[in-house]
Amino acid sequence: MITAERKPFGEIADMVQDAKKLLILGCGSCVTVCMAGGEKEVAMLASAMRLANRKAGRKADIREATIERQCDREWFDKVAEDIEWADAVLSMACGVGAQFCGEAFEGKRVVPALNTKFYGATERQGVWVERCAGCGKCVLADFGGVCPIARCSKSLLNGPCGGSQDGKCEVDPDRLDCGWQLIHDRMKLLGLLDRLEAVQPLKDWSAGGDGGPGRIVREDATL
């Protein structure tokens, strides 16, 4: 899933302080799961805004809504009226949803309430961890299922750097495992250690983020 964290309240408040009519729009998918922008978070943010407005003597109307996904146009239909009504939409979706909302309603100011972080998994309740960097050409098979791009702080493809100490990454030894230690351990477990001897060729980064805005077209699926 795409993970996100809510922006600090002050930053959000600054972005929307001139909006007299504000819609706070949650998203029911990834950001609900990672507890950043689901219905509960919407309610909490709305409460905070109302309380802050009252404290500052500002008058503003706030509406709350949460839709299934902000990355599909049709889901916005349910809240089209609210969006039209609002001076600004405070999107509690990831960057994709927040942008797409603005595309669906051109001329409407849509501002993000979240900072989108990474493609991650739930390690345990309340803890999410990065596992994929969206490079566009998956190399997991060569590394025993541990991604060197997402899990090595330097995205090294041909072995660890000198900052690998006791299995930890020097970037943050308390929190981060060395990705290459993980790769080594897993390959050993799988009995494939010898394969790590193969030299990885230069990676074509254009398949992912570096090749300009991505686009997938499935001819068979298009109408």
Binding site: P8, F9, A13, M44, S47, A48, L51, A52, K55, A56
Partner: peptide, 12 residues
């Protein structure tokens, strides 16, 4: 504790 954070944010 989260509610307290909300209140702090709102200046209450």
């Amino acid at each position: 504790d989260r509610v307290k954070q909300v209140l702090k944010d709102a200046g209450i």
